[in-house]
Design a protein around this nucleic acid. Structure first.
Lengths: 224, 224
DNA sequence: GAAGACCCTATCCGTTCGGACAGGTCCGCC
DNA sequence: GGCGGACCTGTCCGAACGGATAGGGTCTTC
């Protein structure tokens, strides 16, 4: 996680009238904190205040007045993911709050954005992109790495389909089509008792108690 | 796995300097074109070249050298949605291309971004947000209105749920939980025959022949 | 060759479903 | 008032389902 320092970024894009931007960074990794602060300070004229846990962040917001943007690490002392975010958002008044996270979870990102967070920044972001994002959010826009949000969608690693035999999958497919055992048997060229047998075993394998549950599970798993 | 967090993307074209940013706008609505150009020129020192159809855009790219960003309207003479975008992206070399659209379609936006477009701008965007987005994209980032992408997902205008009565929906919800009629009856505080009755009528309403089909349909419709 | 999978078939039994009766109460609306 | 709709309850019956049990077969693997 301790990425090499990157200082040799050219300050080529001094933001448009970005003088006097004040930023609060709350992260328990001092290295991360300093890297962001250093880069932003040298790169645009962005003032940063850094703290290491949530209570300090709260205190900083109260005493050091409103910030243009508050960056919160999802995982740090006192921080409890989405709940704490909600808290800070309520407390911060008009201030903009964004999350930083080492572990990139699309679910949390979406929840955060839905709650009104200004953005979600994975730490895999380059310093340059991060600086861009900070300015962007300070202007009132919402930011999140798009590729990240998009790619998290079609994630279907079929953890469950692997445990079913070929025939059981056939039967399950017929089931998700809403077919009766007799129909499935006819379609597969086997007899009804056999279908029932496969049903029973696949219920056990996927943890269903009846055919409807099995169908729902299969659907939710993205199968068929 | 994320060892280095800083990949300095030095653009092969003219770097993203804020002064002297050159932008190509291709849109058949002159009013829209001029509004964007005017606002960007007065607001940040952004030069704009405007054209009204795709062939002109292609010609402008070839003759007037590389732009920092190309904005293409999805619907304009010569433009064929995603296909034309692919074409322009291939032709434009390192240039950044983004789409503008009057009709906000999340699918097209996602396709465009996946293809490597720099962004997707609905015309419902405020001029201010648009200016921000243009600068942001010129810096090499990807932009799309997040609320737009997110909200397009859970878009369930309940075309089907409207036709079911309150109680039928209750029963259907129990059904999608994989429950038996008896359980549903207990949970709702009614008797089993009543549950069966609701089942029968809701089958008819949604076009299912048995409970499994009904559950599948409800799931696919995004209900519950 | 034995062990263990996956596949198929069959019978039996109790439960559940699906559908069809035939009632009843509310409520809003013409 | 009559009428329709949503809601509830009940009985009946044939069909389907869920599970247990007891066989048969073919493979691969040890």
């Amino acid at each position: 996680m301790t990425s090499d320092a990157c200082h040799d970024m050219r300050p080529e894009n001094s933001g448009p009238r970005m003088h006097g931007l004040r930023l609060l960074i709350a992260d328990d990794h001092e290295l991360v904190r300093d890297a962001i602060a250093l880069f932003l300070r040298s790169e645009g004229g962005i003032e940063t205040v850094t703290v290491g846990d949530l209570p300090s962040a709260v205190q900083a917001i109260e005493t050091q007045g409103p910030f243009d943007l508050v960056l919160l690490d999802v995982m740090m002392p006192g921080m409890n993911g989405i709940d704490s975010l909600r808290e800070v958002l309520a407390m911060a008044g008009g201030q903009r709050v964004a999350l930083i996270s080492g572990s990139a979870s699309a679910e949390i990102a979406e929840q955060a954005l839905a709650l009104g967070a200004s953005g979600y920044l994975p730490k895999t972001l380059s310093a340059k992109s991060l600086a861009n994002a900070v300015r962007f959010m300070a202007m009132g826009e919402q930011y999140a790495p798009l590729a990240f949000l998009r790619n998290a969608r079609p994630e279907t690693p079929h953890p469950l389909a692997q445990r079913l035999s070929r025939r059981e999958l056939d039967v399950l497919q017929g089931l998700t089509g809403g077919k009766a055992n007799k129909e499935i048997a006819r379609d597969l060229g086997i007899t009804e008792p056999t279908v029932k047998l496969h049903m029973k075993t696949l219920y056990r394998k996927i943890g269903a108690h009846n055919r409807t549950q099995a169908a729902i599970i299969a659907k939710e798993e993205g199968l068929f």
